[in-house]
Amino acid sequence: MTDDQSHSRAVASLRGLAVGDAVGACYFIPLNQPLLPDRRLPPDPWYWTDDTEMACSVFTVLRDLGRVDQEILARSFADHHDFDRGYGAGVNRMLRLIRQEGADWREQAAGMFDGRGSWGNGAAMRVAPLGAWYGAGDLDRVAAEAAASAEVTHTHPEGVAGAVAVALAAALAATTDLTGYEFLDEVAERTPPGLVRDGIGNAMTLLPLSDPRSAAASLGNGRYISAPDTVPFCLWVAAKRLGDFEAAFWDTALVGGDIDTTCAIVGGVVAARVGVEGVPEGWRKRCEALPEWAGVG
């Protein structure tokens, strides 16, 4: 694959992630919550959150270096950190300390949650463009680079596993025709053992279900902001809806929970398959533009 192909795949994934994030964020705010069963879009403009802001840093590091450099990625996260984008309290503090006081990102990430590290869904929410960048030609490389990107903020094994699983899904979506059981089986094979991988295994058994609410009742919907509670359901939706961005969005949003993040993950994976043109044009136009520093245009 050429660098141009990697770039175009990653851009498509990033745009799908941003749209999913921005529209999903509208439903995450109770005072601005249309009735999801009616599938009515919220009033625009739609503003993206920390999911997209951090994904832009992942994208720019890959664009500039072709690989994950943890030092540069940590600095980009800190330099572009906007408190008002909805970051979690721990990451807000970490990025502020890195930017203002030169704190060591390794110490900050490892020290979260009394030294256990974060197992939240933050590393998974931003990583789809990385998987799309590499594609499925070397899935071991995808897993390693995704883990490196996660460790900058999430050192708990489950937080890392969530990022690895989403990156693998985006890589497979971008450069294979796999769907359904075979798609999830490939993801599970290289996802580190633990709750995230167990959840993906459960998702495989639930593929015959047609109602996403039934699947979410077993897999989670991101309500607890953890990778195990978020990633398996997102990949269940993606495995069933890889050819239809709009249907994938509504299946994800319908179940509630951490809607901006679940829709960002699903949007990034599905857009890696359908391309920018597969994201509804009207949705793209109503979504806030990506930041100028990302260099996407």
Rank of each mutant, 00 (worst) to 15 (best):
V164L: 06
A203Y: 14
L206E: 08
E186H: 12
G222V: 14
G162L: 12
A173C: 10
P193A: 14
E186K: 15
D177S: 11
A215K: 05
A203F: 15
G201K: 04
V127G: 03
A215I: 07
V166S: 01
A217G: 15
G180F: 15
A203D: 08
R223Y: 09
R213S: 15
V164R: 09
A163F: 11
E186I: 00
A174I: 10
A124D: 04
A171F: 09
V166M: 07
V187P: 02
N221R: 15
G135S: 13
G220L: 04
S218G: 05
T191L: 10
T191M: 01
R190D: 07
L130P: 02
P208W: 05
A143H: 09
L184G: 10
I200H: 14
T191D: 04
A161G: 13
V187H: 07
D177H: 10
L219P: 11
G199A: 02
D140F: 00
M204H: 00
D211Q: 01
L172H: 02
T205F: 13
A188P: 00
H154S: 06
P208C: 11
M204D: 00
Y134D: 01
A170R: 04
A128C: 11
P212A: 13
G201L: 00
N202H: 12
N121C: 04
G201I: 08
T153P: 03
L168W: 01
I200C: 02
V196F: 04
G220E: 12
P193Y: 02
Y181C: 09
D140G: 07
R141S: 12
T153A: 01
G222K: 12
A161T: 06
T176E: 04
T155W: 07
L206C: 08
G131L: 11
A146D: 07
A174L: 10
V164G: 07
A146T: 03
T179D: 11
E158A: 13
A169R: 00
P192K: 07
A150Y: 15
M125K: 02
A143G: 06
T153M: 01
I200Y: 10
R223C: 00
D138E: 06
N121G: 09
N202K: 07
R223F: 00
R190V: 11
T191Y: 05
E182N: 03
A148K: 06
F183M: 15
L207F: 08
L178M: 02
M204I: 14
H156S: 00
A217M: 03
V196P: 01
T153G: 05
A217Q: 09
E151S: 12
E189D: 10
E189G: 03
A169D: 08
A216N: 15
V196C: 13
A123N: 08
L184R: 09
P192F: 04
D138A: 13
E151K: 12
G222E: 02
P157R: 02
G220Y: 06
A173N: 05
A143D: 05
L207N: 03
L172Y: 10
G180K: 11
A136R: 02
G122Q: 10
A161E: 05
A132Q: 02
P208Y: 12
E151F: 00
A174Q: 11
A146Q: 13
S218A: 14
T205Y: 11
D185C: 08
G135L: 15
A128P: 14
T175H: 08
